[in-house]
């Protein structure tokens, strides 16, 4: 089971003075059971790429299949295939439109034609998933929520669809540190328990390093690196720099310590690893 992108390109506003080819000749297979992180500087084409995965954008060239079904052909099968792909947009607040939080999250399941009792269970589970109190928030208007609360509602709306492919375009923008950690923990649990595919677009290299099984680096609309996070962050620092992305902050901090003369291993990716590496280095010095 997989999403296959076969030589896709996309051009915004073709044949106008504003014509812009945002992604070029991308071939990629996204398999169930993979947690793929996509990184790259702003404008490198990440959002354009992921909006192809559920048929929101149609490629200017090339084709996309979801579990073998070409999603760009108009057919009932194509529609059904797209429904397996749940997407949280970069500007999640634009995804909200119902009068209450409950109705907003219930919108997707209702559209799938399931009965109202089942809808209710899905909505409750989804609200718990994103840490929204069911009692307190169900009847609120999404438009009176704080930015971080709105984002949680948008994520819940997608979780309530039980997607087989979960696409998250910078989902943590505006979330507080604990909210971010909790939602990612939930996503990790969902990923491990169900073996769905997760595609995460992120600027947070710590999150990427911690969670992803596979890392894709975009530059100027093309994929320039594709591999495991640990290998890429260790071996491809020059290419990362050229692509305008950083190594995790903790990795950069360790490099600084090394420059200042502390003999630490600087290929760590998490705070936990850094703590151990520093302790080891300090002990060696004494």
């Amino acid at each position: 089971m997989s999403i296959v992108l076969d030589h896709i390109s996309y051009t915004y506003m073709p044949e106008t003075p504003y014509e812009r080819t945002a992604i070029k000749d991308i071939t990629l297979e996204i398999n169930q059971g993979e947690f793929i992180a996509i990184i790259g500087h702003t404008g490198s084409g990440k959002s354009t790429l992921v909006q192809h995965l559920n048929g929101l954008l149609k490629p200017t060239a090339g084709s996309i299949t979801v579990d073998g079904v070409n999603i760009n052909k108009k057919s009932a099968k194509a529609k059904a295939a797209c429904r397996k792909v749940g997407m949280v947009f970069q500007y999640a607040e634009h995804q909200l439109f119902e009068e209450t939080v409950y109705d907003d999250i219930a919108f997707g399941p209702r559209n799938q034609g399931v009965d109202e009792e089942f809808v209710q269970r899905r909505v409750q589970q989804a609200m718990e998933f994103v840490g929204l109190d069911v009692e307190g928030f169900s009847k609120r208007s999404p438009f009176t929520l704080s930015g971080g609360q709105m984002r949680r509602v948008a994520i819940a709306g997608v979780i309530a669809l039980n997607p087989e492919y979960l696409i998250l375009d910078e989902p943590s923008a505006g979330l507080d540190p604990k909210g971010r950690d909790e939602i990612f923990q939930q996503i990790m649990e969902l990923f491990k328990a169900t073996g769905i595919a997760v595609v995460l677009v992120s600027h947070n290299m710590e999150d990427v390093a911690r969670m992803a099984t596979r890392l894709i680096v975009m530059n100027h609309g093309e994929i320039c690196l594709d591999g495991t996070p640990s290998v890429i962050f260790k071996n491809n620092r020059d290419q990362l720099k050229a692509a305008g992305v950083d190594v995790p902050n903790v990795t950069a901090l360790m490099s600084k310590l090394k420059d200042k003369g502390l003999c630490v291993q600087d290929d760590v990716l998490t705070v936990e690893q850094a703590t151990e590496a520093i302790l080891a280095a300090v002990r060696r010095q004494c």
């Binding site: 604990k178 901090l253 705070v271 520093i278």
Partner: peptide, 22 residues
Amino acid sequence: KAMGLDVPLASDLAYRLKERGL
């Protein structure tokens, strides 16, 4: 952290290192 907030990376590392006896 109990409030759901965080500290800068250097503060976090310093805290963890102190906990470990540094």
